[in-house]
């Protein structure tokens, strides 16, 4: 059970980290640009919110598998197919949780408006410098919300993992799969233990996020 916990935390942490790297520029671009291309990309990013995880799982299974060109390329890069591996799960989780990172970030970036950027420009700050010393500090709510939501959402991922994971202990058997497995094999005491812990954990995370947000709002208002 411990390896399932560690594996899940590792998956969620890595996914959140990658999502920060991918999500910040993506959300910034979405917040700043206009036009059809932007709308198309925004739509694509939001799709995991409405699609059944099995759709994603199905396409991942096909595209990461040995019969697809992409799968072949990745196989030669990673030295083996990515289906039924931890790396495969990371790819799936990143796509699956993408909207949970991009949406809050985009909202924050949009709410900053152009004024602080213009002020920074008159002070001769380079765009990059402006981004790191003005935009990001002003966006800490969004960064925090996005990171926590992505992390928690990855913890709860099930459908995609069931389809491309293969239930391998220590590699792809994450907590949600472990619970499923325990329930199916009548080991309900174990299932209760994990399920109950996840219930408490999620409650604490969301509650502390709410409290944190309220506090920091008070702080910035003062």
């Amino acid at each position: 059970m411990l390896d399932a916990i560690l594996l899940t935390l590792k998956l969620a942490t890595l996914t959140t980290f990658i999502l920060l790297i991918v999500g910040i520029p993506l959300a910034w671009w979405l917040a700043r640009s206009r036009g059809l291309v932007k709308d198309m990309v925004a739509t694509l990013v939001s799709m995991p919110l409405v699609l059944p995880p099995t759709v994603l799982g199905f396409y991942l299974l096909i595209s990461l598998g040995p019969d697809s060109p992409l799968g072949n390329l990745l196989t030669s890069l990673f030295g083996g197919p990515l289906t039924f591996t931890f790396s495969g799960l990371v790819i799936g989780s990143v796509i699956f949780s993408l909207p949970f990172m991009v949406q809050p970030l985009r909202n924050t970036f949009e709410s900053i408006g152009t004024r602080p950027l213009e002020v920074a420009a008159t002070l001769r700050a380079s765009p990059l410098n402006t981004f790191f010393s003005v935009v990001l500090p002003l966006s800490r709510h969004g960064l925090l919300t996005g990171s926590i939501m992505s992390f928690v959402h990855t913890l709860g991922e099930f459908g995609v993992v069931l389809m491309i994971g293969g239930n391998i202990p220590g590699e792809t058997k994450v907590l949600s799969i472990a619970i499923y497995d325990y329930v199916e094999s009548l080991e309900w005491a174990q299932a209760h233990l994990i399920a109950g812990s996840m219930l408490c954990f999620s409650f604490i995370v969301i509650l502390s996020m709410t409290l944190l947000e309220r506090n920091s709002r008070k702080g910035s208002g003062a």
């Binding site: 299974l61 096909i62 598998g65 040995p66 019969d67 197919p81 289906t83 039924f84 293969g166």
Partner: peptide, 8 residues
């Protein structure tokens, strides 16, 4: 399915 799709 895993075997038929060539994944194993």
């Amino acid at each position: 399915q895993f075997a038929a799709s060539g994944n194993v």
